[in-house]
């Protein structure tokens, strides 16, 4: 199955989903006017990946910030991951910058809704 590689722009994140390594990464900023268009292919990809998944899947979310148009779409990504969590062992790493409480809280909000363990990773710079 093909990987997804999307280069980041000032309004959309860099995406690297690899079926080969089982590492799925979304990084940068996510502030498009219409996030549904951007995220739908990612959600669809995860659905397909479920049937050919590696034993372990590592998800890395390293976002500087995201708008509310992206919020529900990111939740959809996590829900899709949740739905394939039996087929592969998923870990979600939620990165946030030192003292960036808004981003830490955002990660905790998703963690409260999604039934996959989150690891909150504080780093110096995203």
């Amino acid at each position: 199955m093909d990987s997804i590689i999307i280069e980041g722009t000032p309004k959309t994140p860099t995406v690297q989903f690899s079926a080969e390594t089982g590492v799925l990464e979304i990084a940068g900023r996510s502030i498009p006017e219409n996030a549904v268009e951007f995220y739908k292919p990612l959600v669809d990809w995860i659905g397909e990946y479920g049937s050919a998944a590696k034993d372990n899947t590592e998800v890395n979310i390293r976002l500087e910030y995201f708008n509310t148009s992206s919020s529900k779409c990111i939740l959809d990504v996590f829900k899709k991951l949740e739905s394939i969590n039996g087929q592969t062992n998923i870990t979600i790493n939620w990165y946030f910058e030192e003292d960036d409480e808004d981003m830490l809280e955002a990660g905790e909000d998703y963690e409260a809704i999604i039934n996959i363990p989150f690891k909150m990773v504080e780093i110096e710079e995203i």
Partner: peptide, 26 residues
């Protein structure tokens, strides 16, 4: 506010651009 945000985030309703009523809360 945080509770309300989570409730609206997870209510399954989408506006056309995807935000679904989170803007003002955020």
């Amino acid at each position: 506010l945080r509770g309300f945000y989570k409730e609206v985030l997870n209510n399954g309703q989408y506006s056309e651009h995807g935000g679904g009523g989170l803007g003002m809360i955020d």
